[in-house]
Every structure is written in C-alpha cells, then in structure tokens.
Amino acid sequence: MIDTKNRICLFFRSFFIQCGWNFEGLQNIGFCYVVSHWLERVWGDEDKLKKSFLRHLEVFNTQPHMSGFIIGNVCSVEEMLSAEEDAARKEKMEAGLKTIKKALASSFASIGDRLIWGRIYPLTTIVCLLMWLGSGFYFWLGAGSSNSKLFVAGGPVFSVFIFAAVSLYFRWKGIGYGYKCAGNVSCGLDLMNWNKTLSRLNFAGFVLCFLISLFSCWEVFEAAFASLPPSWAIFKMLLVVSSFALAPVILKRKRTFLSVTGAVFGFSFVAVLILRVVGVRVLW
C-alpha cells in the first residue's frame, strides 16, 4: 500500500501529465515529471537515476484522468527494480515495465476517452442545460427569458463540480490501485464493469437529450406562435426541423461540425437574400 504523503505528491503532480504535450513524445515530458520525485526517492545512484528518467521520456500517451493506474503501477515496479540485486532479473523487469506502460496506456486511453470525453463531458453540459431549462432560462434558444440568475450562474459551476469530482476520483483511486497491482499488466481494468457503466451513461444521455429537445421545441413553438405572424412562426419551426435533420446527415458523411456551420451559413445567406429580393422584412 502506498503511503499517503507520496500518494498526495503523485496525485498533485499527475495534474501536469499533459504539460509539455508534443507530437514527438506525446505525454513523455509530463509523465517523466510526474514520476520524477518518486524516482529520485528510490534511485540513490546518479547513473541509475538518469537511466530511469530516460526510460520514462519515451513516447507515452493515455487518457489523463486514468493515468493514476499507470503512475501507481510504474512507481511500484521502479521501487521493486531499485531493490533487485540480480542483473538478469533486473533486465527482465525493465523490459516488463515497458510492456506494462504500453498495455495499460492504450487500455486506459480507450476506456477513458469513451468514458470521460465521450460521455461525462457532454453529460455535464446537458446537466447545465437542464438546470437552465428547469429554472425557466431558455434564452439560448431565442425564446423565454431569464428567471433565476442563481441557477444560470450555478449551471456551469455545477457541471464543473461533477466533472472534477469524477476526474479527481479516478486519478486518486488509480494511483493507489496501480501501486497495489505492482507490475500486473491488466491492473485496474477490473475496477468496475466499464461496459455496463458506459451503457448506463449512454442511455441517460440519450433520454436527457431527447427530453431537452422535446421541451425546447415546444418552448420555441409556443413563443413563435404567440409573438409572430403564423407564416413566420411556421418558417421558424421549419428552421428547427431542418437544423435537426441537417446535423446528423452531414456528420454521418464523416464531416465535422464546422461543415454543418458552413451549411447553415450558406442556407442563411441564401434565405435572407431571397427574402430581401422579394421585399419581405425578416421577422424574428
């Protein structure tokens, strides 16, 4: 079990794992910095310390919030390596350390990218939206008005709080778990049922997005027919429907959202131009 003082040190240093990110070594500089204090602690000899630093300046990349599992594991192996007397076993352990780093880095990159960037981050955005819609603030849709400034300010803060809690949890947990694994190449992969967690988040994200879309459509429909002439209200609803249909059609063609924005601008330009040419004033 890793002692608390060193765990705290590694935890705070892990915040810098992506510092110095570059296309050559990816997270190499950051990772070396994270474990540098530990290496200085376990390696007394200057040459061996230098060799251990060079080991960790090799190409490395993983999901930063999951890096704790690899950091803890590597620290544990370096500790065992420094205590190993037999030269042949030492060489074998060094080769094993490379394998562990590579295997865990790619495994946790896959899990972390899907979990954190693919689900948690957009879900926290959705939570903020929900808070705003729940408080009657749908100004972002061009309808309604802001009611509760506290909720509006609290939305982004609450999103950050949820995201930070999840990311810090995995960082902290990973370091302790990784250290206990001590060279196990599948360390942390059994921490939870990752696929089940992802499935639940997928379902939650879909349901929340669907409800927000439905509610927002209704709000725009109500506001449009209450304040605009019927023809303009129908035009506005047609814009909503066409925007909804446009995005997945373009994104399915392996294009980015920038292409969607370009298409929207193109359409808006043509639409406004036609309206101006026929002498119709744009109402909103």
């Binding site: 693919g118 972002w140 997928n202 994200g205 066409s242 925007s243 446009l246 997945p248 744009v282």
Partner: peptide
Amino acid sequence: RDILRMAHFMVLWAALSAILHKFAGYVKND
C-alpha cells in the same frame, strides 16, 4: 445581422441534434 441571427438560431439546434444523435448511436451500438 439577419444572416447571423438565422445562422445562430439554426446552429444551436444543429448542435443539440448532433449530441442527441451521438447518444442515439451509442445506445443503438449497445
């Protein structure tokens, strides 16, 4: 101003649609 207003309105709906379809795709894959 009119172009920007229309484009802004549509882009936000497109963004909401993109997230919805992303999660729909995940659920479909599951």
